[in-house]
């Protein structure tokens, strides 16, 4: 978990403690003529928990999906652990990477989705074992031991043989977190992990995320849970209309927002 995967030779910056885990410089993203991200620049330090909040359509999920290249940035530079994501810069020009190389980069970035996206034809245990065996080539026995350990960590050891359809939403999301952790990521992305849950199930997922934050995992969380942001986040970023409106300590921002748009948004959700 805490051990860093050693960076491939030739990439000097990766794994260097002084390099931020995520660095976005002037990132923009358009879908056709619709510009959803406008000149975003921000950094996520190692071990930092950063919460992205904002109204729907503000571009926060799109930004998150750019970090593991599920979406391609239209311009700007986005690097994870010192390496550009999905591109190689040669002589000031960006070159697209081969999909295999991008897949390799994604292994180190865990992602948790709003709709869980568990594989419904596999049991909870098989879901967690899938990537380590298929992508990393880990032996079945080793992957199983590790998967059971992770399921125990999210409190679902005795549900290992259940299919997702027989688990509650909160349980499914906890399995999804275990599945992402099974690849020993150095960074975890959460895309509104509690938005699809019934209110009484939100707590169990947030508890798992709190525990994860305590272990020093670097986390970027898109959320509407202001309580979680206040309690766990190191940094709160408020986005609206594709731009970062306000950044700061979550307690400070939530208590005393500096911008009119932040104030207007918080008055609706708090």
């Amino acid at each position: 978990m805490s051990e860093q995967t050693t960076a491939p030779a030739g990439v000097t910056a990766a794994g260097d403690a002084s390099v931020p885990m995520v660095r976005a410089e002037h990132v923009s993203k358009s879908f056709g003529s619709n510009e959803v991200l406008k000149d975003i620049s921000l950094e996520v330090k190692r071990g930092e928990v950063l919460c992205l909040v904002g109204p729907s359509g503000s571009g926060k999920s799109t930004f998150l999906r750019c970090i593991n290249h599920l979406e391609q940035v239209s311009s700007g530079r986005l690097a994870v652990d010192g390496q550009l994501v999905g591109y190689r810069e040669v002589g000031g020009r960006l070159h697209e990477m081969h999909p295999k190389e991008i897949s390799k980069q994604r292994r180190d970035i865990g992602m948790v989705f709003q709709r869980f996206n568990l594989f419904p034809h596999m049991t909870a245990l098989e879901n967690v074992m899938e990537a380590p065996t298929q992508v990393k080539g880990l032996s079945k026995a080793k992957a199983k031991a590790r998967a059971l350990e992770l399921l125990a960590r999210v409190g679902l050891a005795e549900r290992a043989d259940y299919y997702p359809a027989h688990l509650s939403g909160g349980q499914q999301q906890r399995v999804a977190i275990a599945r992402a952790l099974a690849m020993d990521p150095k960074l975890m992305l959460f895309d509104e992990p509690t938005s699809a849950l019934d209110p009484e199930l939100v707590g169990e997922v947030l508890d798992v995320m709190k525990e994860l934050a305590k272990t020093g995992m670097t986390m970027v969380v898109v959320t509407h849970e202001m309580g979680f942001a206040r309690e766990v986040a190191d940094t709160l970023v408020f986005m609206d209309g594709g731009v970062v409106v306000e950044t700061g300590d979550p307690r400070a921002v939530l208590a005393d927002p500096q911008h009119q748009r932040t104030k207007a948004f918080l008055s609706k959700v708090l």
Partner: peptide
């Protein structure tokens, strides 16, 4: 979402 989840896992 299934395709996305598998992609995000590095498959």
């Amino acid at each position: 979402g299934q395709h996305e989840a598998a992609t995000a896992l590095g498959m």
